[in-house]
Design a protein around this nucleic acid. Structure first.
Lengths: 195, 195
DNA sequence: GCAAATTAATGATTTATTCAAG
DNA sequence: CTTGAATAAATCATTAATTTGC
């Protein structure tokens, strides 16, 4: 019995951690080359194929959204429920939008470093984005046709590799319908120059 | 009908997000004053009490440990099964220790920088050494698994030229309209795994 | 303590949507 | 209006974790 063929990939803890870290760092839908690179690296920790990476990001993103949605709906439920306890018309709890100031933590919040960080984070979150998560605008963006690239094969298409543009060009930046993507709309800023 | 009083706290998405960020940033068992502060802030987003915060951290910590345990055990199993086709004694897979610090980078999930972050991550990984690919020959034969085929095809062959030093950029790979073959030939035969 | 039975997670596939080029 | 590319949603299927009766 030459070991059960194990029909599916099972990530090692290292692989998982790295993938998660990448996800946290903003990667959502890696393009072909990214997938290749990631795969190459992760293969150092265990057997893995490109499709595993691809699927992992797909699933993780999807389930993340799912989780968010669930939270939101639950939240809405709660809103109805809690409305009763709030007779304050003058100071309404920020309804998912405009959660500005108020978070001027007296600065003496916590005492450890971690706390400091947490605080920073908090302000960040506060400042930017917690608001408006309902604006689902799925926009697609063409440039991570990793599949096409794969199909094109490594034969000739492999990029003019050694041709670094000025800054980094790269990121796919796609907005998944939930505004979660880190990437700002690809419109103006980091115009990917696409060679 | 005065609505069901809801016997227990139900975090709003904002509350949850903030708590999770704090957790990621290192907070595990906040003390009384921390709890008070946190509670004060979170109460801005909805009803919440100190004990909710307390319990949340307790539970989250516990479940986090559980998750870790789980991964580890799975990993050990895998070790037996996979043993890695890496015959390189010179390049032993860094076992859980050299996992780059990004695992500690607590809080930097931003939006614009996310790309940069992701990039750094990738570059880091790159720098560590692409080393072996393994999976030179997948034991399974996929007949209709286009993705696997594609991926397996040029696995690890990452452009020889592109010597990924530090800031290698991921080429956008905008396929110039090549390959327009009749893609979806995969599922053709209906038999979908006869449940 | 232990396996069989059950449940939860999550990898892998398939189907539906979306956008825009033609 | 049709079609292709990309991807999100839904679903299927397998593996790991828990529970349960002994």
């Amino acid at each position: 019995m030459p070991q059960a063929p194990s029909t599916r990939w099972c990530p090692t803890p290292e692989q998982l951690m790295i993938l998660e870290e990448m996800y946290r760092s903003g990667i959502r839908t890696p393009n072909a080359s990214q997938i290749q690179q990631i795969t190459a690296h992760l293969s150092y920790y265990g057997k893995i194929e490109g499709k595993n990476v691809f699927y992992w990001f797909q699933n993780h993103k999807a389930r993340d959204r799912q989780k968010l949605r669930r939270r939101l709906s639950r939240h809405h439920q709660l809103l109805h429920q809690q409305l009763h306890t709030l007779d304050e018309a003058s100071a309404p709890p920020p309804p998912l939008s405009s959660l500005p100031h108020h978070l001027h933590t007296p600065s003496q919040l916590l005492h450890q470093d971690a706390n400091q960080q947490a605080m920073n984070l908090l302000s960040k979150l506060e400042a930017e984005g917690i608001s408006e998560m309902a604006t689902t605008s799925s926009s697609m963006n063409y440039d991570n046709d990793w599949m096409t690239m794969m199909m094109a094969g490594n034969t000739g298409i492999i990029p003019p590799c050694c041709k670094p543009l000025k800054t980094l060009d790269l990121f796919p930046t796609k907005s998944t319908g939930l505004r979660d993507e880190c990437s700002t709309s690809k419109s103006s800023s980091c115009s990917t120059s696409t060679n």
